[in-house]
Design a protein around this nucleic acid. Sequence first.
DNA 1: GTCCATCATTGGAACGTTCCAAGTACCGGC
DNA 2: GCCGGTACTTGGAACGTTCCAATGATGGAC
Lengths: 344, 344
Amino acid sequence: MPGSGDSRSPGNRGRATLGSVAARAGVSPQTVSNVLNAPHLVRSDTAERVRDAVRELGYRPHRAARQLRTRRSHVLGLRVEAAPGDGVFDRFLHALTDAAAERDYRIMLYTARGDEAEIAAYSELYDRWDLDGFVLTSTHPGDRRTSHLADRGIPCVTFGRPWDGSDHHPWVDVDGAAGTRAATDHLLAAGHRRIGFLGWPAGPGVGDDRMSGWQAALDAAEVPHGPVARCHNDLTEGRAAAAALLDAGPTALVCVSDVLGLAVLAELTERGLQAGTDVAVVGFDDTDVAQMAGLSSVHQPLVEVAGACVRLITRLIESPGGSVPPERELLTPTLVPRASSGAG
Amino acid sequence: MPGSGDSRSPGNRGRATLGSVAARAGVSPQTVSNVLNAPHLVRSDTAERVRDAVRELGYRPHRAARQLRTRRSHVLGLRVEAAPGDGVFDRFLHALTDAAAERDYRIMLYTARGDEAEIAAYSELYDRWDLDGFVLTSTHPGDRRTSHLADRGIPCVTFGRPWDGSDHHPWVDVDGAAGTRAATDHLLAAGHRRIGFLGWPAGPGVGDDRMSGWQAALDAAEVPHGPVARCHNDLTEGRAAAAALLDAGPTALVCVSDVLGLAVLAELTERGLQAGTDVAVVGFDDTDVAQMAGLSSVHQPLVEVAGACVRLITRLIESPGGSVPPERELLTPTLVPRASSGAG
DNA sequence: GTCCATCATTGGAACGTTCCAAGTACCGGC
DNA sequence: GCCGGTACTTGGAACGTTCCAATGATGGAC
C-alpha cells in the first residue's frame, strides 16, 4: 500500500465513491455495494476488508445516485399549513423529523392553498422529486386527498383517522374521547357532580369525538350531563360561551381545546373566581400556554404518534408488492393535572 | 406522427424523459436540455417544436438525475428545534417553504441536540444528501455554526444577526430596537410619561437590542426612564416581575415578548385593573395568543424575512465562484395596536 | 470559389449507484 | 476425472441528466 493513493474522482469535493473504496479494498465496486446492501452474499473476510476501506476513506453512499437507480428517495412529504398553529404542529414536526431520521428518512416540506392545490402538488413531488410518500395531517370529513393518493398507489399515512369511514390507507390517531373521558373521570373522582362541556360546533370529526368521551364518563358514573356550550376555537367567542356556561352553575368544565380552556380561565378571573377551587377546568392539547397558565390539559403522545406514522408508512413503502393491509393505530392521551383542576 | 407512439422506458412509472421528448420532437436529447436550460443556443422554431413535445408528454425533468450530474439538489436544510416554540417558528417555516418554492427550492428538515450535534450533522446532509445550503435560526453570542460552515465553503444564511460581530455570511434580521421604539413612541403619543420595561436577563443579543429601542425613544423625547424588571420568558416569573413593576406605578409597560406581556395582563386582571385604560401594555412577536388576548404587539414581517433569506442564499449558491460579498438585510417590524394599549 | 467565423445541433462520456447475467473457484459424489 | 451444485465475485448496462468537444450548415469577405 504505497502512501495514501486515493483514487478519488475530481469535481466530487474529494468524496469517496464505491469505486475508490473498491480500489482500496482490492475488490469490485459491486462487491462493496453488496457488503452494504446484501452482506449475506459476501465472504466474511472480504466484507471485513471492505468495511475497513469504508472506514478509512469515510465513504458514504451518495443518495442521488442510489435514487436514480432505485427510484427511492427516502424522503417523505409533509404539508405545512398556513392556518395559525394550535401549538401541536410544531411538536409533531419535531417528533416526526426525529422518528424519520431514525429510519434514515427525511422530511421535505411543501405548502398548498387548500386540498385541491395540495392534490395538484402531489404529482410534482412524487414524479419529479421522487418522494416516497406523504404524511397528511388534519384529516376531515370529505377529505379527498387520501383517495386520490390511493388511486395512484402513492403511499401515505394520516395523523387523524378518516372521518368518512374509508379504509384504504394506514392512519394514526389520538383517542380524543379517551382523553376527555380521563379528564371527566378525574373531575368525578374529585367529587364534582355538575360537570359541563365547552366544545366546538357540532359535526363529525375531532370535536364530536372529544365530546363523546365526556358523555361516556358521565353516563358510566350515572351522573347527569352538565351544561354544554359550543363555539369556534377563538378566545373571544370562548369568553361569551364560558359566561353562558358559568351562569348555569357547573362546578367543573371540560373543554375541547386549550384555547377554550383559557377562555374559561379568563372569564373566571373576570368574575373574581378562582380556577381549581371555585370551578375546575380542563383543556385539551397541553400547549405551552396551558402549561404557563396552570391549565390542566390532555396531553397527546406526539412522539409516539410520529413514531407510528413513520413505522406505518415505511412498512408500506418497503413492502415488495405494496399490498400490505393498511394498519391503524389509536393512541391514548394522558391527563396532566394542574392548578386549574385543583392539583399542585 | 402515427398514433401516440410514446417511447417511454419501463420501470419509470410511464414518465417522459429527455429522450422520449427528443424522439417526439425529432431532435437530440441534448437539444431538449438546451431548450430548457440554455434557450439562447437553440433556433426559435426548433425550440417551439420541443416545447410542444414537452407539453404533450407532460415532461418534467427528473431531479435526481440532474442532481447527480450538477451536484445541486435545490434543497435547503432547516433545523427544527425541540424547544417550546414562541409561535414565531411555525409562521417562519411556512413563509420560508413558500419563498423557497417560488425559486424552485425545497426545505428539508433535520433535528439536533445542541449546536455541536448540528455541526456534526452538516457533513451528512451536505455530502450525502447534497443540500445546497442551510438556513439557520436562533443565532446567539458564541455561535460556532456559521464559522464552521464558512470554513468549508458551505452556503448559509441566518435569520438573526451574528452577535459576535463576525461578517462572513449573509444574514436577515428584524430590527428589534426599532420595534420597541415604535411601541414606546406610540405610548408617548398617547400621553404616557411613566413608561416601564419588562425584559429578559441582561446580555448581548435579542433582549438587550429590544430594550435599547425603549431607551432610545424615551431619550429622544427627553422623558425619564420608567421602572425596569428582567426575568426569563416564563409566565410565572413574569407575573412576579410584573407585580414588582406595577408597584412602581408606571402608566405603561413595554414588554420584550408576548409571554411577558400576557404575564402583565394577568397581573393587571388580578388587581382589578383594566389593560389599556389603567395601564397600557405592549408585547412583542404578535403571536396568536396576543391576538386573542387583545394584547398590542410588535409584528415581525416574517414573509419578507423568509423571502430575503431565500434570495440571499440562492444568490450565494448560484454565484459562479461562490465569492460574492455577504449581504445583510435588517427589516423593520410594525406595531399592531390593540385594546391593551387603548386601541380598538 | 475558397476560407473563416458564427450559429445550431449532435454524439459520447460522465455523475455514482444498483440490477442482471455471467463468470470463477471450490467441493463432494460417483 | 468428470459432473453438477454452491458460494462468492465480477463485468456490463442502465437510471436521466448535463458537460465537453466535435460536427454540419450558413453566410459574408476576399
